[in-house]
Design a protein around this nucleic acid. Sequence first.
DNA 1: CACGGATCCTGATGGC
DNA 2: TGCCATCAGGATCCGT
Length: 273
Amino acid sequence: MTMPELPEVEVTRLSFADRIAGATILSVTMGKPLRWALGCAPETLLGRQVLQVRRRGKYLLLDLTGGLLLVHLGMSGSVVFTDHLPALGKHDHFEMQTSLGTLRLNDPRRFGAVVYASSESDPIAQKLLGHLGVEPLGDDFEFTEFHLALKARQTAIKQVLLGGEIVVGVGNIYASEALFLAGIRPTVRASKISKPRALQLHMAIRQVLAEAVAKGGSTLRDFSNANGEQGHFQLEAMVYDRAGLPCRRCESPIRRIVQGQRSTFYCANCQKP
DNA sequence: CACGGATCCTGATGGC
DNA sequence: TGCCATCAGGATCCGT
């Protein structure tokens, strides 16, 4: 299964944004219900143009004439945009034929969603996007502000990163990876992190995400972009999914713990409490 | 009100 | 075509 985090979503966006820009929507087909309803009659979309594709956190935003589509890949979703597609499969739950190709969302677990909003100020868009933290790869991700925000949180730093209210896009894989790079134990209370260590973390988050984007996204098993090309971050994970294996830096066994019902991986020697 | 837990879904995996 | 329990997880919702 794929676990799309920010890099996977960005890689997906880059793989079709230029090709779909300017396309006119010709038909819309829905499969089984996704996490949220589309929020409009499919016919509402016909005849509209796809102006551009942006990304906010883990959402793809397809700007249309007179509205936008928010596309989320959940944890098992993938998007393809191409001319020649086989008949709809059992896990294809959204398809949009356009004048420039067909966009299709395949999502076995249906945690993903395609939601229509009339604008970004539309209540549904506000509900999904309004609370999101800053973009980690943008200029808004400033260290001073980051450190200040950490100071206010009493939860374990891993949980705070996953929460997405301070900085978006850091999911379960990259949270473990970034904390390893920063040498910080995932269980440390965010408020207890010193300024120098917060700076390490700030840099680590940017580094690990930028590197994953550059390399085409991570692949646990089957992530591929909208052209069907696979990523290869998995070959380079320092701690994620390496429980019991020797740390790549010091050879101590990597530990696995559960935080918020999710696996966390860390090196007890390299990452200090 | 900040925090922690439950919840949605289905395929892969492993034990027997 | 063996069966069954467990696990994976993004993000919202809800209870404390």
